[in-house]
Write a protein that binds this DNA or RNA. Structure first.
Lengths: 338, 338
DNA sequence: ATGAAAGCGCTAACAC
DNA sequence: GTGTTAGCGCTTTCAT
């Protein structure tokens, strides 16, 4: 098989222990010894065996990430943030594209008790919090992105759903809209609920009565949004604007409008959430809410790696990060665009 | 620490070897013994330690994938294909987003001699083939997607660049275009070259003289395409159409056209390559060439896993897969759309 | 500052 | 069909 640490040791005329010290740049090796070892490593083209290292050190230097669909740029960006932070800290990242299947996500959770990964980051609305708590209580390290989690061992990073939803809907109200629909994601997800809360708060601020008829849910996918807006249209309500809980579903709204000949924003103002890359290229460009996806990924990865190395979080475990409403053509006042 | 295989063995009243046999469902275990062991595993909530397994078995059940940017749907789709095949075969996938940095890709190559992964899939135009050959010759398992590689140990999957480029450009010619520009990717990549070849072949078929002035290169990014088309415009040539070597660069062309007030397809017909998700949402929708991204990922992953388990490829190592030109609005004849 | 040696948890060769 | 045991390649006390 491959060369081993003893081979290097022999060539360098030292013990395996010393080679190991050099490899893990322990400071207690004399400069001269170190360079001898380094020379031997180079000469032999030696690479330390990862599995042996993992077994002995009880750490795999690997993080796992579970996402519903890597081809949605919201998730891709988050993964980039995670991967880059991991890379900087010499960690690897195993990806789990669950394809929106909760069973697959459950299976991937076993990477933790397996010790295939040192920690797992969840970016999925599918898994229930209880499940996470169970793992965390068993001593496994988990992180969550996109929702906050009420467990002091689980770092999470999210934006203020209520706040930005309030702002987004207030913007629509300012544009003169009074009949504003809301399309949520999974009915029981925190995101769906909190964004609805912000929506209601904005209506209330302007004394616009809340109408349950104007509420529907997709499942955070284009198809889900498409079906939801059709259901809303079918009720023949005088809707002039819609706040959609993510950009993917807004794509479905665009599609439905195209089919029905409804012009955006003239006949329907639309605003989404996530600021996915695709939103800039749409016509009209989609108003949305920027989510610092890359940063959220990086923050959670960093917290996990930190706690892997220093054992505990410094202080808090919930990280709230600023988001920002981005106004583009899809929500401009009819008079100004039509 | 965690429970070990001996603990399970004790509880079940068998030897560690038997537990191991059950775990790896070796057929030679009596049914009754097997269920006893399974019961013990369940009762103890036992999970086998991955690192120990990897070390002992000399395989990590892990694949690596190197891509330049996971947030480009071309790569995301390929990764999905890889991940799904891997999952079905109980392999994990480590992702390497190189951020278009060749140094980072080089670093990730060490996952192979490290034995962190059993095989590595490259979906990047950045690494030179010689480097790959070097690793393959040392006995490492590599796969390549998007270009063919002249090494019998390296499975690769690609589409016929010359052929589909010929078809794409022929389509433009049929629409009446005679002054057709070409924007390639990295100047020295096979894709850039072969697509140019198809372009030239199409011109030749119609007796249209080849004009080097009409050729420029981006680097397969939106920004690169943006700059390239600007350089072409600046030459004040009577260009009426452009064949762009990938969709990302076509995005840059769209942007430049918007800035210069050039209407697509009336004043400039555009056709890209990859059929990235985003192309359908553009206005006008971008004509492009479908690449079976998911399938390419799955095929290469499968070949690698197969050869990991049966040691050799059945027969061939280069897999050519069908692609198809998709005509949308961006390349329709001016008279019919303008 | 360096070496000797134990052992991480599993699998597989061999014995029965 | 099942058990015994060596050893995968590394890190890390504990000596010196």
């Amino acid at each position: 098989m491959d060369k081993k640490i003893v081979d290097v040791a022999k060539l360098a005329g030292v013990s395996p222990a010393t080679v190991s010290r050099v490899l893990n740049d322990s400071s207690l090796v004399k400069e001269r010894t170190k360079s001898k070892v380094l020379a031997a490593i180079k000469e032999m083209d030696y690479y330390p065996n990862a599995a042996a290292k993992h077994l002995r050190s009880q750490r795999t230097m690997t993080l796992g990430v579970i996402v519903p669909d890597i081809n949605v740029s919201y998730f891709a960006e988050i993964i980039k943030g995670i991967e880059n932070m991991a890379y900087a800290r010499k960690y690897k990242v195993i990806i789990c594209d669950s394809d929106n299947k909760v069973e697959k996500e459950h299976e991937y959770l076993s990477l933790l008790p397996n010790r295939t990964v040192d920690a797992l980051i969840l970016v999925t609305p599918l898994l229930a919090n209880d499940v996470l708590y169970e793992y965390a209580d068993k001593g496994h390290l988990l992180g969550v992105i996109g929702k906050s989690v009420d467990h002091e061992k689980i770092p999470s990073c999210k934006t203020d759903n209520v706040k930005f939803s309030y702002e987004a809907v207030s913007h629509l109200i300012e544009q003169g809209h009074r009949q504003i629909a809301y399309i949520g994601g999974y009915p029981d997800s925190v995101e769906t609920y909190e964004r609805l809360e912000g929506y209601m708060k904005a209506l209330k601020s302007s004394q616009i009565p809340f109408q349950p008829m104007l509420i529907d849910n997709g499942d955070f996918t284009e198809e889900g949004g498409y079906e939801a807006i059709h259901r809303l249209f079918d009720k023949s309500l005088p809707i002039t604007a819609v706040y959609v809980a993510n950009d993917e579903m807004a794509l479905g709204v665009y599609k439905a409008c195209r089919e029905r000949g409804i012009r955006i924003p003239d006949e329907l103002a639309v605003i989404g959430v996530d600021n996915n890359r695709i939103t800039r290229y749409l016509l009209p460009p989609l108003s949305t809410v920027e989510q610092p996806k890359y940063a959220m990924g990086a923050i959670v990865a960093e917290k996990l790696i930190d706690s892997l190395n220093e054992n505990e979080f410094a202080d808090k475990h919930e990280f709230l990060i600023e988001s920002q409403v981005i106004i583009r053509e899809s929500s401009k006042r009819p008079e100004t665009t039509g």
